[in-house]
Design a protein around this nucleic acid. Structure first.
Lengths: 228, 228
DNA sequence: CGCGCGATATTGTTCGACAAAATTCGTGTC
DNA sequence: GACACGAATTTTGTCGAACAATATCGCGCG
């Protein structure tokens, strides 16, 4: 599935296009590419060592996913999110991830689902004692990916993956700025995990929706600092 | 917004890439390109009169949107939906369009929303008396687009637009095969429209979710005929 | 100061070329 | 006749150079 290949597949990007996509998405996530920044083809071909063909193809895909904006004869720009965009984004994430949590709870007794969710829960515990914002962001991503995967809806996984890119950047900035936010986030994850382990779909959905909503509110409270 | 430009923008595709995307999506929608069919670059460059660069770029975007599948050195194939894919698709549509209906109800008193929804409702009435399956498909699309637009969440509009490409093709076949389905669909649309006009978000969401769910069930009942 | 107008930079597209991988197909073997 | 094997063919992935179309910048002019 192109939009969100797993980490292993990412590192071994088979084609030049995938390599470019990976490079730019990662750059946007960790802030190397800032919203509003122009992505000039000549620079990218030089930095990434690919020719214009694959580069343009990659930019086109990124535009389709909403990570980049592409106007004819003006080139690609890292998408700048307005406040309204952020509201929209978290509104959708709330609905989609809530659904994912519901599905995950419903399917908790399939395969190794219970074991994996329990393992994720134990990992969370560790972050409670020794807070490390950056490492936690990784774990945060993994938790959300796990919930989506256990839900089993591939299309849902794909859509959420698209949205995750922006959300990641916004959250990262916010969490770095406020250590307490990490603790809150962990507690909310735990609530979701327990509901899923209980097989209680409604509770899982409720908990996940609240978690996403809170993340959104947190980001919005500091919109000036966090928006591109 | 690249994934779902309005009709006017479509007709005047500014770039070759857009022209290709338009040609292929339309081809998939109206069945000229069948799921599973290979899209060989050489053929397309000949038929569409563009070189491989823009063509490949377009295919990349279509792959990102899930209309086409692209495996390295194997080329692009019109995506073949499995039964599970259809289940996933309608599950997501139910959630997203339900949310759209909820938002539309909440915003019914803004601008000319009420007038436009009422107009759409009147148009539906006409189809009750004089059924015309093909014309109704257009009206069906317009109704869903209207609900999403009134909801006001641009990201939601975009995501639903992506999903609509496949759903459209599936529904078209099914509705053509069974005239009664049109009547049911109209009644369900009316229920949604009334709830929105009442400003009752919960009822609107409920009605829309039921409508989408029924569409999905209808498609699945005839999966053998409808799946690629 | 604002405005037009070239010079420059950047994008959109084409063409031709070649390597890499998949697919096809013929051939020999059992 | 079925099947494995390998070479020929096809198709994709990528590059590089070239050129037109458009945008952007800077400078002179009023």
């Amino acid at each position: 599935m192109p939009p969100t290949p797993d980490r292993a597949a990412r590192r071994t990007a088979t084609t030049a296009v995938e390599a470019v996509i990976e490079a730019i998405t990662d750059g946007v996530k960790d802030g190397r590419y800032v919203p509003g920044q122009r992505l000039v083809e000549a620079d990218l071909t030089r930095d990434l060592g690919v020719s214009r063909g694959p580069l343009r193809e990659a930019l086109g895909r990124l535009a389709a996913e909403g990570i980049v904006e592409n106007e004819p004869y003006r080139g690609a720009v890292v998408r700048r999110l307005t406040r309204a965009d952020v509201v929209d984004l978290f509104q959708i994430r709330e609905v989609l991830e809530g659904e994912a949590a519901r599905l995950a709870a419903r399917a908790i007794d399939e395969g190794d689902h219970r074991r994996r969710m329990a393992a994720s829960l134990r990992t969370l515990e560790r972050f409670k004692r020794r807070p490390d914002t950056f490492a936690y962001m990784d774990e945060n991503t993994r938790f959300h990916e796990l919930v989506v995967e256990l839900g089993g809806n591939k299309l849902l996984a794909r859509l959420i993956g698209q949205l995750q890119v922006h959300a990641f950047r916004l959250l990262l900035r916010r969490l770095v700025a406020d250590g307490n936010a990490v603790d809150d986030s962990i507690r909310e994850h735990e609530a979701v995990a327990h509901a899923i382990l209980d097989g209680d779909g409604r509770a899982a959905e409720r908990a996940m929706r609240r978690h996403v909503r809170r993340s959104g509110e947190m980001v919005l409270r500091n919109a000036e600092r966090v928006l591109g």
